[in-house]
C-alpha cells in the first residue's frame, strides 16, 4: 500500500521530472484551475541542474558526509513487504529455512529513504546500493488456528487445527554503501531470481 501510493504519484508524466535511469524526483502539483487562480507568495521552485542544485549530487554529498541520518527501507521478504528501520522487529509466517542467530543481508529493497530524500526502486533498487543486515532471533509456531467446516442437514462436520511456523527478525542496520547513480551500467544481473 505504502509503495503503491508512491508509485501512483510517480505515474503521472507531468509530475515527474525524470533525472536519470535510477532516480526520480517528484513535483506534485494541484489542479491547473487552482494554479491559475491562486496567488502564491513563494512560487514552486523548479530545479535547475546546472546551478549546483542537482538533487542527485546533494543526495550523494549527504551520503558521503554521513548526514543522511536514520534510514528506512521497504523490503520484500517471503512475499510480504515491510517498512523497516534500524532496530525494528518483523515476523514472517510460513516455513523458512534460516534459524536462530543467522545473519542475513536483505537484498530485495524496493525503497530507501531518510529525512531528506527517498530512493525509489523500479521495481527494486540496484543491488549493492543499500545494505540491510538482519539477525534471526526467534523461530516459533503461530497461535492455533481452527478450521471448522460444517454443512447443515448434511451430516458434514470437519474440524482441523493448524499452527504455522514463524520467524522473527531483528533489523541490525540500514546503510547506503554506494553513491547514487554512479554506476548506471551495473544493472540487476539476470541470474537473480526473486
Amino acid at each position: 500500500m505504502f509503495l503503491n501510493k508512491l508509485i501512483n504519484i510517480a505515474r503521472y508524466p507531468n509530475n515527474v521530472n525524470q533525472l536519470s535511469n535510477l532516480f526520480q524526483r517528484c513535483l506534485i502539483s494541484s489542479t491547473p484551475a487552482a494554479h491559475n487562480k491562486l496567488t502564491v507568495n513563494k512560487p514552486l521552485e523548479f530545479v535547475d541542474l546546472k546551478e549546483g542544485k542537482d538533487p542527485v549530487q546533494n543526495v550523494n554529498k549527504k551520503i558521503q558526509n554521513s548526514e543522511a541520518g536514520r534510514l528506512f527501507a521497504v523490503v520484500q521478504l517471503c512475499g510480504k513487504q515491510f517498512k523497516i528501520t534500524q532496530g525494528d522487529v518483523i515476523m514472517l509466517e510460513g516455513f523458512w529455512e534460516p534459524t536462530n542467530g543467522d545473519q542475513l543481508r536483505l537484498e530485495k529493497v524496493l525503497l530507501c529513504g531518510s529525512q531528506d530524500f527517498t530512493l525509489v526502486g523500479r521495481p527494486i533498487l540496484q543491488k549493492g546500493l543499500v545494505d540491510i543486515q538482519a539477525t534471526i532471533i526467534e523461530k516459533s509456531l503461530s497461535h492455533t488456528r481452527t478450521h471448522f467446516k460444517y454443512k447443515k442437514r448434511k451430516q458434514y462436520r470437519r474440524i482441523n487445527f493448524q499452527r504455522s511456523p514463524t520467524t522473527v527478525l531483528r533489523i541490525n542496520s540500514i546503510e547506503i554503501n554506494n553513491s547514487v547513480d554512479q554506476n548506471e551500467a551495473q544493472k540487476p544481473s539476470d541470474n537473480v531470481f526473486f
Binding site: G69, R70, F72, K80, F82, T85, V89, I90, M91, G113
Partner: peptide, 9 residues
C-alpha cells in the same frame, strides 16, 4: 507482524 520504536522518519 512488525514492531518499531521509530514509526516515522
Amino acid at each position: 507482524n512488525w514492531h518499531t520504536d521509530c514509526p516515522s522518519i
